[in-house]
Design a protein around this nucleic acid. Sequence first.
DNA 1: CCGCTTTACTTTAAGCTTCAAACATCGGCT
DNA 2: AGCCGATGTTTGAAGCTTAAAGTAAAGCGG
Lengths: 170, 170
Amino acid sequence: MDRLPDDIVQLDAETFASEGSQHHREELRLWLRLLTCTTMIEGEVRRRLRRDFDVTLPRFDLMAQLDKSPAGLTLSDISKRMMVSNGNITGLVDRLVASGHVTRRASETDRRAQVIRLTELGRAEFRRMADAHEGWIADMFAELTRDGVDDLMALLGRTKDSVRKACCNA
Amino acid sequence: MDRLPDDIVQLDAETFASEGSQHHREELRLWLRLLTCTTMIEGEVRRRLRRDFDVTLPRFDLMAQLDKSPAGLTLSDISKRMMVSNGNITGLVDRLVASGHVTRRASETDRRAQVIRLTELGRAEFRRMADAHEGWIADMFAELTRDGVDDLMALLGRTKDSVRKACCNA
DNA sequence: CCGCTTTACTTTAAGCTTCAAACATCGGCT
DNA sequence: AGCCGATGTTTGAAGCTTAAAGTAAAGCGG
């Protein structure tokens, strides 16, 4: 019987009126923390890529995708994998072609599509950057234990599934 | 004495030639997964903010900071809290002033600084958006258990500390 | 009080990003 | 063959973002 007042208090506090119809504070805090972690790492990687290799993060990311697919990728492929809009990729590729890091060539099977590939220069530069990059990332996660890394990996896997369900309702 | 060979093997594997000087693959995969989660959520939030409220994510984020600080914030405060460059905030605030969502006023104690505050319109609109936003986030994390949320929170807390040490060497 | 460093902000150039609209091509269907 | 919805790409406008350089004011140590 003396449990009830506690529940009421929780819903009745001033937080209720000012916050919204439900208390999803925990998830919100979780999201903000997730965003903070990503922003911190991303910012540092961006800074170091520019400082050490004079390259932007989007250029690096695009080259990373191409490095994983030696047969080449279409603009749409790249767009899906990088999770950015397709119009974005057009300009990014334009600039990478101009600097000699990638090539565009017409697809042989689809006259709408173009296949983008790393040039030798592009691949060589990417390898150098990727080496350094891998070390930076390792450093940033260095304080996590082996189990910490595994646990985080698993939890983020579940998060990804959860987000996918909520967004694509699939 | 028989420890030595193991260390050599570690550096001598074929991963060495193709990957870099150490195998930090796990951390790299973890980072990519973290980035994927954030990108998915951020993209969906951006899309919904635009669709339902015709507002951009940076504008929403800035208003969120101001909502948390009713006394107002200087441009530098905002810049630090949002973890974006200071030049960025100038333009963002300009546009928010133009649309009547925030006010700039000179600081009374520091003639260099300006205090930015939400207007009544800004606060009202932010509240509406924040309500919806909180629900969206809750939905996206809905498949995580209570413990999952707590564990993730804790692990990301440790990650944040680790990143901070690696970046600011402090 | 002067000079120096730091802090607050603005400006510019270059690049990134999205969205929406336009266009070409593809593939299936009749 | 011809239509039609889906897919691949480009374009343009608006806005976001950073880095770097510049101005102004604050604060500190002589």
